[in-house]
């Protein structure tokens, strides 16, 4: 794969001032909000059926029958929106040797010594982990989810298969909620990240601090957008 492929089509520097860097275009951001909203709705409706202590959450969807009916449709939305995303981002999330080095020094990152870590492209190992974990878990969830979608597929599989599917579905759901918490918290902890999801851009300093190689490449490849 050539280096240029690693740079996403929409990424560009705006000289400013202030200096900003585009990370996500409007379509990608809109899609990300669809992904986020459907994942949150799925978590709430799913947790309601996961444990009796959270069954009251079905009230948000107009009762248990509606929750049961809506949950799989939220899942379809998540699956479609995430996999649109997936095909845009997977190349940039391929694992590299630098990621091992970065991971081995993750303690420095948490302790506030990010300068001791290697320079990175658009995604760090943590972001890549979230990306692949989400991809794998969403695949498990959609397959197991369809198997237990009795409204339409009750007769398609045997009960033994459905039992395994429902166990896999609940384990994968627990894991994806944990990954989701990690993802959101990392975005909050790393100040200046959320604007990539609202405005689509980050400050030059943010790019320098967290994804310096990416910034260097953009600068080196004349990826400069029109001033705002």
């Amino acid at each position: 794969m050539t280096e240029a492929e690693r740079i996403q089509p929409g990424d560009a520097i705006h000289i400013g001032p202030p200096l900003t860097v585009d990370r996500y275009g409007p379509a990608a951001r809109a899609n990300h909000w669809v992904t986020a909203a459907s994942l949150i709705l799925l978590a709430i409706s799913g947790l309601a059926l996961f444990t009796p202590s959270l069954f009251f959450l079905t009230d948000f969807f107009g009762g248990g029958q509606n929750t049961r009916m809506l949950h799989p449709w939220f899942g379809i939305v998540l699956f479609v929106s995430f996999f649109v995303f997936f095909f845009q981002l997977w190349r940039a999330n391929l694992w590299t040797r630098t990621d091992f080095v970065w991971l081995s020094r993750i303690g420095d990152l948490i302790a506030g010594h990010e300068e001791r870590l290697p320079e990175l492209e658009k995604y760090n190992a943590g972001q890549k982990f979230v990306f692949w974990a989400m991809s794998g878990l969403i695949l498990i969830l959609i397959v197991s989810g369809v198997i237990i979608w009795d409204q339409y597929f009750a007769d398609a599989t045997a009960i033994g298969t459905k039992r395994i599917a429902i166990l896999a579905h609940s384990v994968a759901a627990v894991l994806i909620i944990c990954v989701f918490i990690l993802h959101v918290y990392a975005g909050i902890w790393t100040r200046g990240t959320l604007r990539a999801m609202t405005r689509g851009s980050v400050t030059g300093g943010w790019a320098w601090r967290h994804h310096r190689k990416w910034l260097r490449k953009l600068a080196g490849q004349h990826r400069v957008g029109p001033a705002e």
Partner: peptide, 16 residues
């Protein structure tokens, strides 16, 4: 929190 510093911003300006 992991905050972007003034130096980071300056370094980025300089790079560009």
């Amino acid at each position: 929190p992991n905050r972007v510093t003034e130096e980071d911003e300056e370094a980025a300006e300089e790079l560009v």
